[in-house]
């Protein structure tokens, strides 16, 4: 069963933008699309570890700022390239961004 924890207000992340969540095991990027969906991914491009949170968000994808790899937010897969970013459950409820606490534990064991 999911263990949703409240992270922040939705409006703390700009539309078509991202913010970082610091964990003991590196940063997770939380993305917000134009349609107010949120996605959580590791903040490291599979190519050269580029900070995805600094990329341009378009549709349900983000373009890495270092070398323009395009990563699908839903799957974490790089489009047209070999590579995948870890994704974590995230959702919006009552204007708040919620993440599944279990992902932290997964990251801890990993």
């Amino acid at each position: 069963m999911s263990n949703w924890i409240d992270i922040a207000a939705l409006d703390a992340v700009p539309q078509r933008g991202a913010r970082l969540i610091k964990t003991l095991h590196g940063c997770v990027a939380v993305f917000r699309t134009a349609g107010n969906e949120v996605f959580a991914l590791d903040n490291a491009c599979p190519h050269k570890n580029g900070p995805l949170a600094d990329g341009i968000v378009h549709g349900k994808a983000v373009t890495c700022p270092l070398h323009n790899w395009v990563i699908a937010l839903e799957t974490g897969e790089a489009q047209g390239e070999e590579g995948k970013v870890a994704t974590y459950p995230a959702k919006v409820a009552k204007g708040r961004i919620l993440l599944d606490a279990d992902f932290l534990q997964q990251r801890a064991v990993a």
Binding site: I7, R19, K22, T23, L24, V30, A108
Partner: peptide, 8 residues
């Protein structure tokens, strides 16, 4: 700044 800082 980080949106949140989560510890284990």
């Amino acid at each position: 700044e980080p949106l949140a800082t989560l510890t284990l």
